[in-house]
Structure formats: structure tokens, C-alpha cells
Amino acid sequence: MSSRLMLLLGFTALLAPGAEVTKAKAPPPPAPPAEEEDQADPMLASGSPMYPWTDNQRRVVHHWFLPGATSLPEGDWYYRISHVARDGYDREPRTNLFGLDDNVKMGLTLGWSPIKAVTVTVQRINGRDLAVEDVDGGKVQYDTFDVLAKFQLLDQRGVRGWRKGPCDLSLIAGQSLMFRNHGNGDGSLNLGVIAERDVMEDRLRLGVGLVRAGLSAYDGAIGHGAGDKLMPDEQDYLSAQGAPYQPAELATMSIPLTARLAIAEHWCLLGEAIIPVQGWKTEGGPSLATGFAYNTNTHEFAFILTNTANAAFNSVITGGSKVGSLPFFAFSITAYL
């Protein structure tokens, strides 16, 4: 009897307050507000919904040909290497690796945002042989430096631009400076306005704009030929040689169109067209580029097929080399720092 009583006491001890039966508890009380203001995330603070690809879609400072409508975050840097073959990939693929082995046009770009909504970029594009008499036994060439400033007036989310608006909207102004290895050079005053908007839960980013180069250029691919736009110092020389062609106009105005479709968080399809509407043009239709890109949140790797082997602002807006054909392979590597 006493042993049964002790056993009963033992079981009773198990039910004592020191060992509670598990039961549903009320959630802990809400914490008081934090003592001071933190450095809030501007995208989070904007209240805009975000999707896995939103950051990668909004980061595009420069499309394949022309600047985009978005600016870098204040204080950030950006660099890009672009590489386009001047020989078509369908010519001797066994010996020139789809046109990448030689005769390429390369662009090296550095960008910086000194203050909010402003981005300054400098791009250097390698040389073009001018059709003029050789100097000191060597060809006369020029490299081009695109120096552009972008001011983002509007931001669809009110984060990077000067004001919030229905789309991203930027004004662009700068110069394409063509420096000769013998002699001085020429410059083109470049102006533009670009608008872009994200739709379909940020999957699709569409852009349209209007750009103008005061002294447009065109460096023909697949060899320097009559389709090239003659620069001022070429015209007198070729006239003296009896060449019949002289461009009637110096400037070009064009409408750029862009589209980026995010097919996954890190992958997107790219499309860009620049339609010359006034001034000099190649008569080869719009400049076209299409391809895909892979984004790592800090870098973008893009692979492009295009119909113009140019890279400078004032030479990509003049049109393509051939209607209905994308004969040139290109790629770019972009880093956001």
C-alpha cells in the first residue's frame, strides 16, 4: 500500500508546475520601435513590389548600342567591355572563330555616378582607318571617345531619378570625340532622351527614345567600302581621287527601341533597334541587335548577334550594314561596383 502511494506521488510530481504540460502559448509581445532611424533600403521603402528579376532588369545603365534610361546609384561605378567582330560569323568559321579572332571593334567603358540621378560614362572605341593618304608610311586612323552625361529625370519607383514618374526617363548629352593618330580630330555633339518602363511584374522592360548625333559616322564592316560614311577629311581626298560619293548630310537623328525579357531571375533575352529617321543613314535598315544575357547580381554577360559592327554613339545610330541579316557576333562583360 505505501509503495503504491509513493508511486502515485511520483506520477503527481510529473504534473507539478515545475514541468508544464505543453499548451498553445500566446505570441510574444510586439517590440517597441527601434531607438533611432536606420539606413532604409530605398526599394523597400518605395513600397514597390519586387520580383526575383527586378534588380537585374533595373540595373541596365547601357544596352548593347545606346545608354538606357536608368542611372547608377549615387557613388557607384560601372565598367563594360564590348567586343564585336567586323567580319561576319559565316565567313571562314574554321579560321576566325565566328569573326572573333581579328578585325574587331572593342569598346571599353567606365561609368560613375557623382550625385543622385546623374551618371557620367567614358567609352573608348578602337580605330577606324580613314580613306586618306598615308602619313609617314602609316595609315591615318581615329579612335573614338564617347563622353556622355545622363540625368535621370524620372524613376518608375522613385528611387534613383530626380522625381517619381510613370516610367524611367533620362536626358543624355555628350560628345563623340574622334582623335586621329595624325592630326587633330572631329567631335560630334550627341543629345538624346530615353524612356523605359517595366511591365508584366517587371519581366518585360520596354524602351523608346530620340537621339541625335551632330556628326554621325559609320565604319563599314566586312571591309571598308563605299557604304561607309565619309568623314570631312576623307571627302576632299577622295574627291581628288575622283571618287563619286559624298555624303550630303553630317548629322543623324534616330529612334531607339529596346526590349529586355526576364525569363528567369538571372537570364534575359535582349533586343534593340535604332531606326534612323533624319539625316545620313546607311540605307541598310535600322541597326539591330538581339541576344541573351546572364546576370549574377553584380555582373552581366551578354551574347549578341548584330548587323552593325560599330560601338560609338554617333556610329550606331546610322543604321545597319545589310537589311534582314545579323551577320556579326558580339559579346559584352559588365560589372557593377
Binding site: P28, P29, P30, A31, E37, Q39, A40, L44
Partner: peptide, 25 residues
């Protein structure tokens, strides 16, 4: 390239009941 939330402090005690933070950072 985003926010930095570093000011949250929760004083503890032997009978601290816990806390709930909602939409914080």
C-alpha cells in the same frame, strides 16, 4: 547596395517574454 538596419536593441531579463518584430528591415 541596399539598406543597413543596425539599431534594434531588445533588453533581456530572467522573465523576458520574447518579442515580435513585424516588417522591420
Amino acid at each position: 547596395k541596399g539598406g543597413h538596419y543596425k539599431k534594434r536593441k531588445l533588453p533581456l531579463s530572467p522573465d523576458w517574454p520574447g518579442a515580435t518584430l513585424t516588417k522591420e528591415g
